[in-house]
């Protein structure tokens, strides 16, 4: 008798989300099987890998993560170009750090103007990220949505306290959003339900707030796994969104990363591959070498 390996066929898909526009647009998600289970189902899109760009000079960055960008950190447009042209990034994450009300407190108008310039300069898809300040993020991202109308940006983080404002602007101007609920599958579902009352589910990416190795990576792993299982195995429609992990900041804060370039890069790469194994669909990297390592491993 011939041995037939038992296969688990799943009848539903993680939603496919398109980011950006035109030839360089990127698709994430779309799988109908668990991570890397290509023997059981289809994984039509490889994970999205983005490099980070700040809208202002980084402060307190470890020397070895600053080094690749040293000549461009004073200009986000040049920084973005270098990421794409030199480091081959297929997607970028523009972090609007200067809007932080506890820091430079730049206005939504200024932030939107910078975002427009940067996103006009290179044609890859963009994640545009606030500062985790609910109210300010709402003002900033609404303005960004308007000024960059039609660019299909991925705006985030969108949380319980500001999702209505940001998602309405995103809907009106053709962008996607990142729904963020911290390390909790129930709250992830809750926010998705609330969003889906007026927002298309295929334009939502979820962020469980990833913690890198040494910061609670195990918890992140479990939450990502849970979200995927609920979505695919239990067929929960509100849990079938692609998952984003943003963890470069954690990695490069470690003593090990500050002391050694190699350790920092590995720290970031190990965290990233772990999240992919759990089921993440979109990763944000700080160091181009870490991104390259992951790319070599999985793509």
């Amino acid at each position: 008798m011939k041995y037939e390996p038992p296969l688990e066929k799943i009848s539903v898909n993680i939603r496919e989300t398109v980011l950006g526009q035109g030839e360089k647009s990127v698709k994430i998600g779309g799988e109908n099987t668990l991570p890397f289970h290509s023997f059981e189902g289809s994984l039509p899109n490889s994970a999205g890998l983005a490099l980070e760009v700040l809208d202002t000079q980084p402060e307190n960055w470890a020397p070895s993560v600053l080094e690749p960008f040293e000549d461009v950190v004073s200009d986000p447009v040049k920084w973005a170009k270098k990421c794409v042209e030199v480091y081959g990034a297929e997607m970028l994450c523009l972090r609007l750090l200067s809007t932080d009300p506890m820091g430079k407190d730049r206005s939504p108008e200024e932030a939107a103007e910078i975002t427009k310039k940067v996103t006009d300069a290179v044609d890859v898809p963009f994640i545009v990220w606030g500062t985790d300040m609910e109210d300010k993020d709402a003002q900033v991202l609404m303005q960004v949505a308007r000024v960059c109308s039609g660019k299909n940006l991925l705006l985030g983080p969108v949380v319980k306290g500001n999702y209505e404002k940001i998602a309405k602007a995103a809907l009106e101007h053709g962008h996607a959003v990142v729904a963020q609920a911290s390390m909790d599958a129930n709250l992830t579902k809750e926010l998705n339900i609330a969003l889906c009352k007026f927002f298309p589910p295929e334009k939502i990416v979820v962020d469980p707030t990833a913690s890198a190795l040494g910061y609670g990576l195990e918890y992140t792993f479990s939450i990502i796994e849970e979200i995927k299982q609920f979505g695919l195995v239990d067929k929960d429609k509100m849990m079938q969104m692609p998952i984003l992990c943003d963890f470069g900041g954690d990695c490069w804060r470690t003593k090990e990363a500050k002391e050694s370039r190699e350790q920092g890069i590995l720290w970031e790469a190990i965290s990233g591959i772990t999240f992919l194994l759990a089921g993440a669909n979109l990763l944000v990297f700080r160091h181009p070498e870490s991104l390259k390592l992951i790319k070599e491993m999985v793509i």
Binding site: E190, I193, D236, K237, M238, M239
Partner: peptide
């Protein structure tokens, strides 16, 4: 346990 709990379980 047939569907994941959220506070808005009645709305889906």
């Amino acid at each position: 346990g047939k569907s994941l709990y959220s506070h808005s379980w009645l709305e889906v």
